[in-house]
Design a protein around this nucleic acid. Sequence first.
DNA 1: TGCAATACTTACTAACTAGTAAGTATATTT
DNA 2: AAATATACTTACTAGTTAGTAAGTATTGCA
Lengths: 182, 182
Amino acid sequence: MADTKQDILDLAEYLIRSRGYHAFSYKDLSTPLKVKNAAIHYHFPAKKDLGVAVIRKNIEVLQDCFANWEGLPAREQLFNFIEIYSLNSRSNLICFMGALGPAYQSLPEEMRAQLTEAGLQIRNWLKWILNKGIEENAFHFNETVEEKADVIITSLLASLILNRVTGDQVLENVVSLIRQTI
Amino acid sequence: MADTKQDILDLAEYLIRSRGYHAFSYKDLSTPLKVKNAAIHYHFPAKKDLGVAVIRKNIEVLQDCFANWEGLPAREQLFNFIEIYSLNSRSNLICFMGALGPAYQSLPEEMRAQLTEAGLQIRNWLKWILNKGIEENAFHFNETVEEKADVIITSLLASLILNRVTGDQVLENVVSLIRQTI
DNA sequence: TGCAATACTTACTAACTAGTAAGTATATTT
DNA sequence: AAATATACTTACTAGTTAGTAAGTATTGCA
């Protein structure tokens, strides 16, 4: 038996991350999955439940990554994190934060709360890994970890967006600069 | 006589930059402006015409800025450019590229073309001003101008997005780092 | 064997969407 | 004064949207 719920969630994530939350409908899910729209409402009563589930899934995947990297040198962990964006770029997907963040003010409250939590978690992990790298004498930058963390997260996030708009070089340039200035 | 067309365009820009292209309707324009939806179709026959007009307006405003700054030292021009983002942040607006870029694949072809053109123009100006600053001995960075330009534009763009999601410090941190590493 | 839970489908709706055709008031030009 | 252009309104539509109530087939369990 096919896991319809998982299929719905995976396709919803793909649609959100390639078109945006407001640019896909239940039909965009039901037609390719060959189910009726009521089947989607059975698993996710409202569209916002689908949105929340997609954000939660992304948070959990990230947390699993962070947990699996535990013990690795800070430099390696940071480069693994950056590699996620390169993989996204190759499959022409932007990250969930880049897809949903711009529409923040038009999102249901539950989605906004999850998005804020996700953003804080990623930022906190980045600050933590930068501090760890400083302690390990692996990173040598003069700015504060808050400044460095915010530049890394923002430039990676927007690179995926601009890659689609102006071409494929943006992420490569950004990754190259981060590697040189860390 | 009120300039309805300009009012429509201004409100459409506000709605796109606070909610996104797919999250506003003709009703969101007609109700506050106290006109009927047909009045909007009179000035902008299709929704995509409104989208194209908003992008074009933003391109022209930017080009006017660049023209007005001509003659100023590169450092001052770059800081003026950064100041635009601080102003946007204070009025809780993201830039048109941050609002429309994530939905790129779901936008009408005419809008995509304008968006790509806008992205290339901004990137080219940034590269040009960075080169100018190097010639003036005002900038001292070791990376390529392409890398530096891409990090500046992406981190500013995404700072406005993350400021809304996680709080108000992101843009300040990013601006501080850019100023230190230029 | 019967009961209940799970995972749907069928069939529907109310609200909203962008968009249009035809009419009207006002200002401008000839 | 008549004709024309501008800037709308009125009144409508076809299609889409998320969402629901009721029915059904299948599975696992007591």
